[in-house]
Design a protein around this nucleic acid. Structure first.
Length: 486
DNA sequence: TTTTGAGTTGTTCGA
DNA sequence: GTCGAACAACTCAAA
């Protein structure tokens, strides 16, 4: 489906002519020119609290652009792709309500942006930066091919990278001191955009949007989710640990796509209050992981702590597949992976358990898990995903110590005591009682059969033994540490 | 420069 | 069943 929308020409307020030094500085030749800006929307699919958009609106006629790149499509699950498309469509509607439009183009940004700059005689490019080195490299390439003004902002973090540092100016490697400094800076003001003046351009749709499944897309959806979370934020500290309770903010995908910014969230949750504190702390973690990736881009693909460079990861595609598909035989792990595959979301507590299981029980490289999560999670974001996987693997700054190995059975008993979460996502075990459901292999096979469960047939045998896997993991990490004495 | 205290989310063992 | 210690020293941050 390709719909072409002819744009109204809006020139009424278009009076931002100015004298600029143009093309021949040595001759000191001034010509009468007009600024035309592109606001390049990426992971900031909103108009409110968007510094790039706010700046773009102050200068002259503006063209709102979204570039759909191959890499974006390839690295995302079908669910994630559809969410992206529906957020982009929502932004397009918002812009149309303002009398403008979102120009959606397909192709590598390094080609499409320069083409647009040429076609519309663009003089200024605005966008919000992304902490991922892959995005950064792309942006550098785009900028390098242009000879126009470029304005970059940090729109999706509370405080920009480099602004929260130790007394000696370095980036914190421990979270708590970072958090204290971050808190002390307060909440930055939210920038409001002026009424935009749109340049004359046409929009085409580069993709088809499926009717959304439950989740209201765009900024309005994000604000609905925020409003609903605000009413129960005082329960967050307790409720967030229990996967059968809907106690988390469910704002992670909005933060990833930028349908809402963290500063707006901080304002809405009354961030100084005691009840908001544990949640605000999580937003600080988000900033920290982004800051670390900007200063230390290598952590995207290698351990932050180099003593762990030599861990002898196992190459085991069969186990990896079992993990990905929720067939490990550990009910809490499988429930998590199945929730992920079905919905594009996984509860935070279960992410830790499932992540730890892959890295420590299966001894599979955290990068394999990082790739899978980033693909499948609607909120899958490079800086956040890498930060959290390095935390789980124990290889990150201020990460879990290597000997802290989650016991998937204990975690299940503790945080899904009644098996509600497991029964929802692993229905073949739903006939088991609260005691039996966490570790079905410990139950008498005849009893299991009487409840319609036969291991190896209706549900897998556990692919590793907890105690054996735990020892194997400890040894693997220890020998990596021994090999790299420091 | 030296010193001191602190460090997301756990598990296991033995008293 | 409950409790404290060990896990393992190490790095970081700030006084």
């Amino acid at each position: 489906m390709v719909s072409v929308v002819k744009k109204r020409i809006l020139r009424a307020n278009c009076c931002s002519f100015q004298l600029v030094d143009y093309a021949f500085p040595l001759l000191n030749t001034y010509v009468l020119s007009m600024n035309i800006g592109i606001c390049w929307f990426r992971k900031d699919l909103r108009l409110k609290d968007n510094p790039a958009w706010a700046k773009a609106c102050t200068v002259g006629p503006v063209i709102a652009v979204f570039v759909l790149e191959r890499t974006m499509v390839d690295s995302a699950s079908e669910l994630k792709r559809q969410l992206l498309y529906s957020h982009v469509s929502a932004l397009q509607s918002e812009l149309r309500d303002l009398g403008g439009d979102l120009l959606v183009v397909s192709g590598p940004a390094a080609e499409t942006i320069p083409e647009l700059v040429h076609r519309y005689r663009v003089t200024d490019l605005y966008f919000n930066d992304d902490p991922s080195p892959i995005s950064f490299h792309r942006d550098e390439t785009v900028i390098g091919s242009l000879d126009i003004q470029v304005s970059r902002s940090w729109g999706n973090l509370v405080h920009p990278p480099g602004s929260v540092v130790t007394n000696s100016g370095s980036v914190h490697k421990i979270f708590t001191p970072f958090y204290k400094k971050w808190l002390a800076k307060g909440i930055p003001l939210i920038v409001e955009a002026a009424q935009p003046v749109f340049a004359d351009y046409e929009s085409t749709n580069a993709f088809e949007v499926q009717p959304s499944q439950g989740m209201t897309p765009g900024s309005s959806g994000a604000h609905e989710r925020l409003a609903s979370f605000v009413t129960k934020i005082s329960d967050y500290a307790y409720a967030r640990d229990y996967p059968s309770i809907d106690g988390t903010s469910r704002l992670s995908a909005d933060l990833h796509f930028g349908t809402i910014g963290p500063r707006e969230i901080l304002n809405a949750v009354n961030s100084g209050s005691m009840s908001a504190k544990p949640f605000v702390r999580q937003l600080a973690w988000r900033d920290w992981y982004a800051h670390l990736m900007v200063t230390d881009p290598e952590i995207t693909t290698s351990p932050a702590k180099d003593i762990y460079e030599g861990i002898a990861w196992r190459d085991d595609p069969t186990s990896l597949k079992a993990w990905e598909t929720g067939m490990t035989g550990y009910p809490i792990v499988d429930a998590g992976m199945r929730e992920l595959n079905a919905t594009g979301f996984m509860h935070n507590r279960v992410r830790m358990v499932a992540g730890s299981f892959l890295v420590k029980h299966l001894l599979i490289d955290w990068r394999a898990g990082e790739r899978y999560f980033r693909h499948a999670l609607l909120d899958g974001d490079r800086s956040q995903n890498v930060g959290n996987w390095q935390w789980v693997a124990g290889t990150g700054f201020d990460a879990a110590p290597y000997f802290r190995i989650f016991n998937p059975i204990r975690q299940s008993e503790k945080f899904d005591r009644e098996g509600l979460y497991i029964r929802k996502w692993v229905p073949e075990l739903s006939s088991l009682n609260d005691k039996e459901i966490h570790a079905p292999w410990t139950i008498n096979p005849a009893l299991l059969r009487s409840k319609g469960v036969e291991l190896g047939l209706t549900y897998p045998h556990p692919i590793v033994d907890h105690t054996v896997a735990r020892d194997r993991c400890l040894n693997a990490y220890k020998s990596a540490r021994d090999r790299k004495p420091q």
